[in-house]
Design a protein around this nucleic acid. Sequence first.
DNA 1: ATGGGTACCTGTCTGC
DNA 2: TGCAGACAGGTACCCA
Length: 276
Amino acid sequence: MPELPEVEVTRQSFCERIHGARVTDVRLGKPLRWPLGVEPQRLVSRTVGEVARRGKYLWLPLAGPDAEPGGLLMHLGMSGSLAFSPEPGAAGSHDHFDLVTTRGTLRLTDPRRFGAVVWSDSPADGMAAKLLAGLGLEPFDPAFTGAHLHAALKRRRVAVKLALLSGDIVVGAGNIYACEALFLAGIDPRTRSDRISRARCDRLADAVRETLARALALGGSTLRDFRDAHGMAGQFQLQAQVYGRAGDPCQACGAPIRRVVQGQRSTFFCPTCQRR
DNA sequence: ATGGGTACCTGTCTGC
DNA sequence: TGCAGACAGGTACCCA
């Protein structure tokens, strides 16, 4: 489900409300992608710090009573969402993690259980470090430029869409936003990454930033069930130009949008507006 | 190192 | 209505 905009919208929707809360209980449901990596009871009495995001991961700092470091690295996988509420009600069959605090309960709901909640002493340690290692630049990092993108794409021979999705060049664009950014840049998603000119990389870097920024401003995309931690749906999907629109006329030129499969995932593009 | 494929798990939708 | 099959917003891991 969630790409960078949805994860960031989620972060913003509960970060301030949970900041400074003290953990009073932890409840686990079915297993997620990895074990929590700590006795749940060891989280009790810890204090929640400022929630941070790296790529599609969230880092929830949990300082011990004597300022012992530590925190939870969370990922929403394909179908996860976080809700923060004073009275969450009984856990349903898809609720797999509750962090109960003095301000309310942070609950992870994840039907497919590709998501994760993992303890580490710091983002630079243990499992968190392993998962965060090798992530590419943040799209809003000033270092993410056309020049950087060009240099990175030159080193690969995969289709440019797969290079964007891989997350080791730039993070945050998943299947929806990779398709949309390539449309905005006018680049055929099947183009070999090492054959894209510097000028087109400039446009693509801009397009990735613009696509993600616009989605963020609209509260993300809600295709079936995405909600932020207040329960609000996103609106970006209403503005998608190509994603999920196979057969529809391109809004720019009228040609039918095509769907192809790359890396076992659907890619949508306009065969006229997007060139190799 | 790179690229390609598989695996994880459940729900929803489509077509017969 | 039932059932099989395709498909879904992600990514770690294995193998060539």
